[in-house]
Computed example of a mutant assay.
Amino acid sequence: MSETSGAGILPCQSLEALIASEAIAADRPFDPDQVQPASLDLRLGVRAWRVRASFLPRPGRTVADRLADVMMHEIDLSAGAVLERGCVYIAELQERLALPKGVSARANPKSSTGRVDVFVRLLTDHQPAFDDVADGYRGPAFVEIAPQTFPVLVRAGTRLNQLRLKRGDPPRLATLSVGVDLESEAVAGFRARRHAGVVDMDRVGGHDPRDFWEPLTPRRGELLLDPGEFYILASREAVEIPVLQAAEMTPIDPSVGEFRVHYAGFFDPGFGAAEAGATGSRGVLEVRSHETPFLLEHGQTVARLVFEPLTERPSRLYGEGGSHYQRQGLKLSKHFRPWS
């Protein structure tokens, strides 16, 4: 079976066709590895703005209109700039959209962005919701950036989020509960250190993890989440995404626990799949407790994976040609050297 019928997520060859037709365009050439099996990495532009508050453009207003109300000062990203934790920024993206009728999109932070606790959300004109791009949207795109734990160094071309395009309204094929692993490793997780240094978001393997993270060895399969702290944990279950599907990990609802899991939620087709050279990679969980301490137990459900069909089989799968996160267990973001 090579195709699915009707609505679905667009695979990489469809994204490349949209780029060729300039339905997705940019002022500079696209990077060779920018198109993923079922998503497109988005690149920061030259300009960003420190703002005093997050916002949404209501229908009939543009992001630029609304930006004028909350802007504090402009930042030039051409040579790089440090974005401080606890502050909110808006940056223009290099990509602009002219989507065909019947095609909409949804954005999510990249895995490496979520794993350093940078809160990222897409903004488009006239859209009163973060991360959703309306059917047939034509216009620019912006990203809200709010570092929560570490200050980060970014520059024009840095990729913090990604876009998934879809035709119609794809059905949910399945929902998989994801539990947390607090037993299988000598180090079962990491807690972010407060007052650590700057993370360069384009520097792969260039940071000593011990300067930024504290290893955790839970007792009796339990971990007490402290309010306001940020944790990296792993799923108990191996995750496998079929080649004709994509998945999104959704934040947990309050009925299961007062914490948020997984700021970066896209899984491309082939993640953890034998056909892509892997056998069930673990999902890495980015966890932040809310107002109260919460005692997490081994195997406890912390998130859910929602699967949707692709319109056709992608011409390449996740992990083919190399990946930082295929076959992963508990793993920090690509910015850090392996823990030893």
Results as ranks from 00 to 15, higher is better:
Ser2Trp: 07
Glu3Lys: 09
Thr4Cys: 12
Ala7Trp: 02
Ala7Lys: 03
Gly8Val: 05
Ile9Leu: 14
Pro11Ala: 06
Gln13His: 15
Glu16Cys: 09
Ala17Trp: 02
Leu18Lys: 03
Ile19Arg: 07
Ile19Val: 13
Ser21Val: 07
Ala23Trp: 00
Ala25His: 12
Arg28Ile: 15
Asp31Glu: 15
Gln36Cys: 10
Arg43Thr: 05
Arg43Phe: 01
Val46Tyr: 07
Arg47Pro: 00
Ala48Phe: 02
Trp49Asn: 01
Arg52Asp: 14
Leu56Arg: 07
Pro57Cys: 06
Arg58Tyr: 13
Arg58Phe: 13
Gly60Tyr: 03
Arg61Trp: 07
Arg61Thr: 12
Leu67Thr: 03
Asp76His: 04
Ser78Val: 10
Ala79Arg: 12
Ala81Gly: 02
Val82Gln: 06
Gly86Lys: 04
Cys87Lys: 11
Glu95His: 10
Gly102Arg: 04
Arg106His: 12
Arg106Met: 15
Asn108Val: 11
Pro109Cys: 05
Lys110Gln: 03
Val116Met: 05
Val116Lys: 00
Phe119Thr: 00
Val120Pro: 03
Thr124Ala: 13
His126Phe: 09
Gln127Gly: 01
Ala129Leu: 12
Ala134Asp: 08
Ala134His: 07
Gly136Ile: 11
Tyr137Glu: 05
Arg138Ser: 15
Arg138Gly: 14
Gly139Gln: 09
Ala141Cys: 14
Phe142Tyr: 15
Thr149Asn: 08
Pro151Ala: 07
Arg155Lys: 13
Thr158Ala: 10
Arg159Tyr: 01
Leu160Met: 14
Asn161Asp: 14
Asn161Tyr: 08
Gln162His: 06
Arg164Met: 15
Leu165Trp: 08
Lys166Asn: 08
Pro170Arg: 01
Pro171Leu: 06
Val180His: 05
Asp181Lys: 10
Ser184Gly: 10
Glu185Cys: 11
Val187Ile: 15
Val187Ser: 04
Ala188Tyr: 02
Phe190Pro: 00
Arg191Gly: 03
Arg193Asp: 04
Arg194Asn: 10
His195Arg: 15
Val199Ala: 09
Val204Asp: 01
Arg210Glu: 13
Asp211Pro: 01
Trp213Pro: 03
Glu214Ala: 10
Glu214Trp: 03
Pro215His: 08
Thr217Ile: 06
Arg220Cys: 14
Arg220Trp: 11
Leu223Cys: 12
Leu223Asp: 07
Leu224Phe: 04
Asp226Pro: 03
Gly228Cys: 12
Gly228Asp: 09
Phe230Ala: 11
Tyr231Trp: 05
Ser235Asn: 08
Glu237Leu: 06
Val239Trp: 00
Gln245Glu: 13
Thr250Ile: 15
Pro251Asp: 11
Ile252Asn: 14
Ser255His: 13
Val256Ala: 15
Gly257Glu: 01
Glu258Phe: 11
Glu258Ile: 04
Glu258Trp: 09
Gly265Pro: 08
Gly270Cys: 06
Ala276Ser: 13
Ala278Thr: 03
Thr279Ile: 10
Arg282Asp: 04
Leu285Phe: 08
Glu286Met: 09
Ser289Gly: 15
Thr292Phe: 08
Leu295Met: 11
His298Asp: 13
Gln300Met: 14
Val302Tyr: 06
Val302Ser: 02
Val306Ile: 07
Glu308Lys: 07
Leu310Asp: 00
Glu312Ala: 11
Arg313Ile: 05
Arg316Leu: 02
Leu317Trp: 00
Gly321Cys: 07
Gly322Thr: 08
Gly322Met: 08
His324Ser: 12
Gln326His: 09
Gln326Pro: 07
Gln328Val: 05
Leu330Cys: 04
Leu330Val: 04
His335Ser: 00
Pro338Leu: 09
Trp339Leu: 06
Ser340Cys: 12
